[in-house]
């Protein structure tokens, strides 16, 4: 790769790591493992054949590397047929590299949050494109309920149940309920206990959120000493969830 780029090996590794946040070797391994993981689910080929095809010296080496990346050995991944795709590393794109190099805002801060009680609408989501529609409906419902809109704190909460890649994940558009009085039958309430989170700041339009999440799950998480404590993501928008000129919001990932 260094030869192809016309750099010395040392310089290439340093530049690559600085931009991609993975060493070339780590990136190559993760891409091989990700592609092989897809083959494991989509075909019935033997694990040993898949291991050799993706340049692993033995099934044992492959199994160890696989478990390190996906948290489970290849045979279990295959048996489940539905796996956490957030951990799968896609091919790098220029858009992604530009996104994660816009600044150092992807460095998280560890925070403890007190229990949070929110009220809103939850739907099963296959595609994040439907989420703005949920916001519209929530706004209508809240408009009917009361008028203290200036005091609302807005949250988007994603919950990834087992098998979410196949069936979809749950997404809740919500407001903190402190300012709402009495029951509101059209909405649901969610109570999230006090947890420890890695807090990231996402900058950029909503369509780039996936890039930030890719970075969190595929680069930051494996390089940290942390694990996810719940299959949950919280987006905190403050008092305005709409896309403004330079949108910026906080993303909380529960960790342990």
């Amino acid at each position: 790769m260094a030869d192809a780029a016309g750099y010395s090996l040392y310089h290439f590794c340093r530049v690559f790591n600085g931009i991609v946040h993975h060493t070339p070797y780590d990136y190559l391994m993760r891409r091989r493992l990700s592609e092989s993981a897809r083959v494991m689910i989509e075909t019935d080929r033997k694990i040993i054949d898949v291991a050799f095809e993706y340049q692993f010296n033995s099934p044992e080496t492959y199994s160890r590397a696989f478990k390190r990346m996906f948290g489970m050995p290849p045979y279990r991944w295959r048996n489940q047929r539905a796996v956490d795709e957030r951990l799968w590393m896609p091919r790098l794109t220029l858009e992604y590299i530009q996104h994660i190099n816009k600044g150092d805002y992807l460095k998280p801060v560890l925070v403890e949050r007190e229990a949070l009680r929110v009220m809103g609408l939850m739907s099963l989501v296959q595609d994040r494109m439907v989420i703005p529609h949920l916001w519209e409906i929530l706004t209508q419902e809240l408009g009917r309920a009361e008028s203290a809109s200036a005091l609302r704190e807005y949250y988007g909460i994603a919950w990834y149940p087992r098998g979410w890649e196949r069936d979809g994940f749950f997404y809740m558009v919500a407001v903190e309920t402190k300012s709402l009085d009495g029951p509101h039958p059209a909405l649901v309430v969610k109570v999230i206990p006090s947890l420890t989170y890695a807090r990231f700041v996402h900058k950029g339009p909503r369509r780039d959120l996936e890039l930030t999440l890719d970075y969190i799950y595929q680069t930051w998480l494996p390089q940290s000493d942390m694990r996810l404590s719940h299959p949950l993501e919280i987006e905190y928008y403050g008092r305005d969830f709409s896309d403004h000129k330079e949108p910026e919001w906080e993303i909380y990932i529960p960790i342990k």
């Binding site: 009495g182 029951p183 509101h184 039958p185 649901v188 109570v191």
Partner: peptide, 22 residues
């Protein structure tokens, strides 16, 4: 919404939701 009735809004599992009917 499918669920069971509880006495009070305490100790709700994080993966579940609450519906309050007036």
């Amino acid at each position: 919404f499918v669920g069971v009735e509880v006495e009070r809004l305490e100790d709700i599992p994080v993966e579940m939701l609450v519906k309050i009917l007036p």
